[in-house]
Computed example of a mutant assay.
Amino acid sequence: MDPRRLRLLRELARLGSMQLVADELGVTTSTVSQQIAALAKDVGLALIEPDGRRVRLTPAGRRLADHAATILAAIDTARADLQPGDPAGTVRVAGFATAIRRALLPAIRDLSRDHPRITLRVREHEPPEALDLLAAGAVDLALVYDFTVAPRVLDESLEVLPLWTASWSMGVPDDPGIGRCGADAEGLTAPEVLGRLRERLCIVNSRDTADETVLRLLGSLAGFTPLIAHRADSLELVVDLITGGQGVGLLPQAWPPTPGVRLLPLHDPDVVQRAFVVTRRGHTQWAPLGIVRRLLTDRASADTGVRATAADR
Rank of each mutant, 00 (worst) to 15 (best):
R294K: 14
A60D: 10
L221G: 02
Q34S: 10
H67S: 12
L296A: 07
A74S: 09
A37S: 09
P116K: 10
E186Q: 15
G182A: 13
S167H: 13
A88D: 06
G244H: 04
R53Q: 15
L251F: 00
A300L: 03
R123V: 02
A99T: 11
D240C: 00
R196K: 15
R200P: 12
R207Y: 15
R101H: 14
A308V: 01
S301G: 07
T31N: 00
R196W: 13
A74R: 01
S17F: 01
A311K: 07
P128H: 02
L57I: 04
R54Q: 03
L57Q: 01
L215S: 06
V271H: 04
D66G: 13
A275W: 02
L45G: 10
A232G: 06
P288K: 11
V122L: 09
L251I: 08
L111R: 05
L9C: 08
V277W: 08
V43A: 04
L39K: 09
H230Q: 10
S301Y: 08
A22Q: 10
V21E: 08
A222F: 03
D81K: 06
V91T: 01
A300I: 09
L8N: 00
H125Q: 06
A78V: 01
G61M: 03
D268V: 04
D175I: 05
T225C: 05
L111V: 03
T29D: 06
D155T: 06
R5P: 06
A97S: 12
P128M: 07
T148V: 08
P269K: 07
F276T: 08
V139K: 02
A150D: 02
H67I: 02
